[in-house]
Simulated scan of single mutants.
Amino acid sequence: MTQTLEALSRRTETLTSIRGIVHTMKTMSAINAVPYERAAESVAAYHQTVLNGLRAFMAKTGPIAMPVAAQAERILVVFGSDHGLCGNYNEALASHARAATEATDNTRVLCVGARMKDALTDQGLTPDTSFLPPASADGIGRLAGDIVTRLDEVGGGDLHNRVAVTLAFTRRAGRGQREPVMAPLLPLAPSLLSAPGHTGWQSRSLPDYTMSATPLFAALLRNHIFATVFQASAEALVTENAARLALMQQAEQAVEDRLEEVGGQFRLVRQDEITSELMDIIIGFEALKKKPSV
């Protein structure tokens, strides 16, 4: 009986330690998500500024018809995670990426994270290039710059005419869920270049610029591409931490339930031991009462 109580005590101590670790991981996931959320909000505001610049450019020059490449190389950029404790984050997105590439041939795959590379390989996709995921929000700009540079290399300096790029990442959905997203990046959507010319410039001041139109347009498009890649990466990191937070909450609840169960077993065993000790005392007392006097 004593050994059983000791075993239950050790189990309770172990579960209490695990609960502390899980609580710490949950807190870290919640804290880590904040800088990525702020980065996503900041780049969204920056992206809107770039789009306003494009709209101003179109309002002065008129819509631009980009040439369509007949044999554009298809590129899929998949944003994964190298951190654990986030469930099937990589596997689910890799499966979705595989389904998206079945309808097309000769798709070149670029991925973020060694674990995503393994997940894609398991799906029969061999990534052409693997990028290191950012360790903090400050590294998102580095990652976005590396991806844009690699795309520019593949496109031979003519991204808009030689490649068709799709971004695959996971974003937050309703009720704490997440969903895979396949977001087209290139070629540019016709509305991006034509709509501003049709809607006009919504201001009492007319837009103007002093630098040459060609380099200005190229800079606006490059910043649009950079901001889109940056935003996809930031959203993927926010979702990763949200997935880890949800799993840690489930794990914490499971540990709490187990602790309650072990605590109930401990109380029952302890009560049985106390009852047994009381019975021994009573039996001994009765034996002494019946003992004949000398």
Rank of each mutant, 00 (worst) to 15 (best):
179 E>W: 05
229 V>A: 04
137 A>S: 09
223 N>I: 14
294 V>L: 11
187 P>Y: 08
252 E>F: 10
100 A>S: 13
237 L>K: 13
13 E>F: 10
228 T>F: 05
250 Q>G: 03
132 L>C: 05
160 H>I: 08
279 M>Q: 09
188 L>T: 09
132 L>G: 03
7 A>W: 05
177 Q>A: 12
74 R>G: 01
1 M>P: 00
228 T>H: 06
86 C>A: 15
239 T>Y: 02
65 A>G: 00
116 M>A: 07
77 V>Y: 00
45 A>M: 10
119 A>M: 04
21 I>N: 12
268 L>P: 00
9 S>N: 11
144 A>K: 02
160 H>K: 05
166 T>D: 02
137 A>I: 05
37 E>K: 10
44 A>S: 06
155 G>H: 02
147 I>D: 04
130 S>R: 08
171 R>M: 13
269 V>T: 08
284 G>P: 01
245 L>R: 12
169 F>L: 02
45 A>G: 01
240 E>H: 14
265 Q>N: 04
9 S>A: 11
134 P>D: 08
71 Q>H: 12
87 G>D: 11
168 A>Y: 04
66 M>V: 15
218 A>I: 02
22 V>F: 01
124 G>Y: 07
55 R>V: 03
267 R>W: 05
80 G>P: 01
210 T>D: 15
198 H>Y: 15
24 T>C: 07
275 T>H: 09
27 T>Y: 13
84 G>M: 10
277 E>W: 02
266 F>S: 04
71 Q>C: 06
104 T>V: 11
177 Q>M: 12
11 R>L: 14
178 R>I: 13
263 G>T: 07
35 P>V: 02
11 R>D: 12
28 M>L: 14
56 A>Q: 02
227 A>Q: 02
203 S>Y: 05
272 D>L: 15
282 I>H: 06
272 D>Q: 15
161 N>P: 00
8 L>K: 01
43 V>N: 06
22 V>M: 04
247 L>M: 03
269 V>K: 08
232 A>S: 07
65 A>Y: 03
271 Q>A: 15
194 S>T: 14
258 R>F: 08
246 A>V: 11
197 G>M: 06
159 L>Q: 05
82 D>S: 10
144 A>P: 00
62 G>E: 06
46 Y>T: 10
96 H>S: 11
207 P>V: 05
194 S>H: 08
209 Y>I: 12
116 M>H: 06
287 A>N: 12
283 I>G: 01
102 E>T: 14
247 L>V: 00
239 T>D: 04
168 A>I: 00
256 E>G: 00
256 E>A: 14
134 P>L: 09
135 A>Q: 12
22 V>R: 00
197 G>Q: 02
166 T>V: 08
283 I>N: 06
264 G>S: 08
120 L>E: 04
101 T>Q: 01
133 P>A: 15
118 D>S: 11
35 P>N: 01
263 G>N: 04
199 T>D: 15
51 L>R: 11
110 L>M: 13
172 R>F: 06
291 K>P: 01
269 V>A: 13
223 N>T: 13
228 T>G: 02
173 A>L: 07
57 F>H: 04
139 G>W: 01
97 A>G: 09
131 F>R: 10
86 C>Y: 07
